[in-house]
Amino acid sequence: MIPTAFRYRRAGSVAEALALLREGGPGAKLLAGGHSLIPMMKQRLAEPELLIDIGGLLELCGVHAVGDAIEVGATTTHADLAASALLRERAPILAEAAAEIGDAQVRNRGTIGGSLAHADPGADLPAVLIALDAAISITGADGSRTVPAADFFRDILTVDLEDGEILTDVSFRPVRSAAYAKLPQRASRFALAGVAVALEMEDGVCRAARVAVTGAASHAQRLPAVESALVGARLPEGAAAACEGAGDALDFVNADLHGSEEYRRAMVAVMARRAVESAAARG
C-alpha cells in the first residue's frame, strides 16, 4: 500500500515547525512517530501534501521534574515513558500504561504527543492524563496556551488543536496512588475499555478521586459519578460498590465486532474496580 505523494521536511526546532506549518497551510501535517498517521496514509484516509517531521526534535523529548511537577515532551516515545525511572517512582501509572501500548515496535516509534493529538477512541494515554489532571501545552502562530486534559478530548479523533498548532508537552503533579486497567483488543492492544484512576487516600479512606475512561466511548472522558461515589469510601473494600454501573453513565458507547455496547458498559465497571483497587493498594 503506497501513500499519495507528498513533500517532506524535517523540522530542526519548534519555531521552524511552526513556520513550515504556516507555509504549508491546510495541506501540511506534523509527523511524529507515524504510527497512526502512516497507516492512515497507506490506506489513503489521510493525504497530506507536506509532512513536517518533528519526530527527532530533542527540544520536545524527555521526562523532566520541574519544581513539584513532571513535564513530558510531546515526542517522548511510549518506550521511553515505560523506561522512565522518574515516572516509575513518582507517577507509575503513566509508565505502566505506556508499557501496555501495542507491542515493542509500536512503543519504540509512537509518541505521547501523537497519541494525544490523534485521539483514537481506544488510545490509552488520554485517560491516564485526564486522571492525572494534566495540563496540555500547545503552541501556535499566536503564542502558547494550556488546556486541561479533561477539556482537550472532544469527540472521535477530535481534540482542541487548531491547524498550525503544535502540542509541545504535558505537565502534571505526580500521584503515586494511581493506576490504569484495560481490557485490550487481543490483536492491536487498543483499549476496548480502559479506566484510569488517581486517588488521594488518608488512613484507608478516599479523600478525592479522578477517574477517566477510554476505549468504550467516542473519546476519553471523566466519570464524575464514580468520582463522587469514591469520596469517603474505605478502599479497597468499597471499590466494587463505588464502581458498580460505572459504564452506564456514558451517553454513547462504541459497539463493534470486538464488543457490544452492553459488554463494554459492563467492562468499564470491571476495569474501574480493578484500577481503584490497584491505586488504593499504593496507599
Partner: peptide, 16 residues
C-alpha cells in the same frame, strides 16, 4: 533495528 530499536519498517518512511 533503527538506531538500535526494533521498528516495523513498513510503518517508517525511508526519509525518517
Amino acid at each position: 533495528l533503527l538506531d538500535g530499536r526494533s521498528v516495523k519498517s513498513c510503518t517508517v518512511f525511508a526519509v525518517q
